[in-house]
Simulated scan of single mutants.
Amino acid sequence: MMHVPPQAADARAKTGIPVLDERLRGGFPRPSTLLLFSDKPTEKRLFGENFAVQGVKAGDTSLYVDFFRAPQLARGELKRFGTIDPSKLVFVDATSSQLLLPSQEKYRISDIGSLTNIREAIVSAIEATAPSRIIVDSMEFLMDRFDKDDVLRLWHELIEAARANRAVICFLFINWTLLEEDLAQIRSMSDFVVEFQSSVRGGIVRNSMRISEMAENGIRTNWIPYAFKDLIGLTVYFPRILVTGPFNAGKSTVVRALAEKAISIDRMGTTVAFDYGNVNITGIEAEIFGTPGQERFEFIFKIFAREVSGVLLVIDATRPEELPRAKQMLDLVGPRIPYVVLANKSDLVGALSTEDIAHRMGLPSDVPVIPTVATESKGVRDALLLLAEMIIGVR
């Protein structure tokens, strides 16, 4: 008889990426079905691995069904996530029978040519281990070898087995041959679809994902850039956040307040080229670039403004005469780039209120204006987190 562990009604499975988990109200609900989908090979396996490992780190059991890698190979690759309890990460061996080799795993598919045997092996492992997370890597392996309708039937049966155990089940899938109507059916069986894409810019591969909840009025995100960090896992990664604003507003101080290590090229205490820093807070990693505020350096500003993820516009709240210049710099970036205004030096006598700044600059009502004191790191981190939420599309 299947053992189902007691669960709170609002139990959630965290992704390990705080800004996403917050938007997901603590993680993906249990039970639920995730489709990790792309049209071509990408890093969606990394998301599945990260999701499984995060479950183990939380003290839960994760079950991994891998049709492409031997369990010992997969375990070796998962060491990059750091030390985990091996007893909590259970594999269903789906490769030994393909290679006509004996299996060392407790749970294994003995006949890879039989969907019935595949189903029985996976369901038996679910019932015996009661995992909170199940990863099936990857369904195109089955679509390439069996009748489509039979595979879709198995897909549905695995969903039912996961739901009976109150588990989150993730199906990795690359579409090689299915028609749109078939994809629509697969999406309809899923509670969430996580899509992946890769692009190459300047010789650098950039990966991104977006999450869509299939329920009406469900959660939707923009394309979210991400990266992998050894021993940690997936992080939201913004390759270029621009810190800009008029002369002497405190841009370099903002960069130093956000980054543990920052560099600045300056002359006589004034930035003449740029500031640079790497930021890593609450699962968000960003490369931030500060530009000089003088108009004669506008060509540098235009270079760094290309392909930015978002902008932190720093203004001196005690100098209203600089607000037109600040607005001009926003216009140079473009209308589609998310931005947050930092009303810096807000602790000084004569500083404008955030409402007054928004009014004088004619800012849209949804643009945040955050009072900051960069010399004391006050408000700066909050501004970056707000910007991250705007870029991701969860605010």
Rank of each mutant, 00 (worst) to 15 (best):
M1F: 12
P6Q: 05
A11I: 08
R25V: 11
R30W: 00
F37T: 15
T42Q: 03
K44N: 13
L46I: 12
F51C: 00
Q54N: 15
D60H: 09
T61D: 09
T61W: 03
Y64K: 03
F67H: 11
Q72D: 14
L78Y: 05
T83N: 06
L89T: 08
A94Y: 13
S97I: 12
L101N: 09
Q104V: 10
S110Y: 13
T116M: 06
P131E: 07
P131A: 02
I135Y: 00
E140L: 02
W155R: 05
L158V: 15
V168M: 12
C170K: 04
N175S: 14
M189E: 15
S190N: 03
Q197T: 14
V205T: 15
N207V: 08
E213S: 05
F228D: 12
L234R: 08
T235N: 05
I241M: 02
V255D: 03
A262K: 07
M268D: 13
V272W: 00
I288N: 01
G290N: 03
E307A: 12
V308D: 14
L313I: 13
M329W: 11
P338R: 04
Y339F: 14
G350A: 04
G362T: 12
L363N: 07
S365W: 05
V367A: 06
V369I: 11
A374D: 14
